[in-house]
Amino acid sequence: MTSTSPISPTRAPSLTRALKSPLSGRLTFPLVCLGVWLLTIQAVTTIWPFAVDVLPTPWQVAGFMWDEITGNTLAPQNMYETFWISLQRLGAGMAIAMVVGGVIGLAMGLSKSVNAFFNDWIVAILAMPNLAWALFCSLAFGFGDTGPIVAVVLTGVPFVVINVREGVRNAPTDLYDMARAFGVPRERAIRHVLIPSLMPFLFAAGRYAFALGWKGLVVAEVFGGQDGAGWTIKFWYDAHRAYGVIGYALLFVIFALFFEKFLFDRLSRRFFRWRPSANATAEDPAPTDQQRTPQHG
């Protein structure tokens, strides 16, 4: 009885509690956004009647998104083809970035000299805006696949390097030493001790490289692509269809959320099922300064 007393008194307080709960706030947010949007349109159209075209209504955007989802589009490729093309580029770029970054990160973690050799340049590449890579790649490699892929590699590599280096530094040296002392051959010790301890960091590296590589890819495609997600949003922009730009932007958000929340969370749970306690580290291993900085521009 005592344990349920906070809930029991009457029905009315539980209703107000439901209204006050974070969930109701969360549900209110889209409604408020919609309201603000409609009010803005109302206000703008009364002040400047000619601005009707510029601010799309929510219905226009919803209609556009519905057309896109059903594959009925004015753009050269429908949304599924477009995102698939971009995903292929992202995958190729990420694979290269993982290999290159993994090797450099491993070397940097193992040797202080190598670390000193590369460190400043990694930081410099990390702080470079995506826009610079995108414009440079579009000019240097022309339109096509190479430019965007190089841009993904350049944005992804520093994150992989930093994560792998962190992982090597956190490797359980005592475990490794013990394995060696008990006569376990080096390859087996690396396979069973070092690599499992590196996994969470590699996974985090992949996740960051994915999120940031995606942003870099989109910018690169805007300037140096002939197809793909970035190119398509630029297509709507050039066509001066505001509802197309906003609708595509919403598709981007959905796409990113899908990968972040569903795919990576699932994967990480699956990957690290064998280590019951390390789930927390798998989700978010040692966020360093650079990692917590979401890169936009």
Binding site: K215, V218, G230, I233, Y237, V245, F252, V253, H296
Partner: peptide
């Protein structure tokens, strides 16, 4: 999570 590019394009068009 939204890339800066998207905001740049939306605000530019509006």
């Amino acid at each position: 999570t939204t890339p800066g590019l998207i905001w740049a394009l939306i605000t530019a068009i509006i």
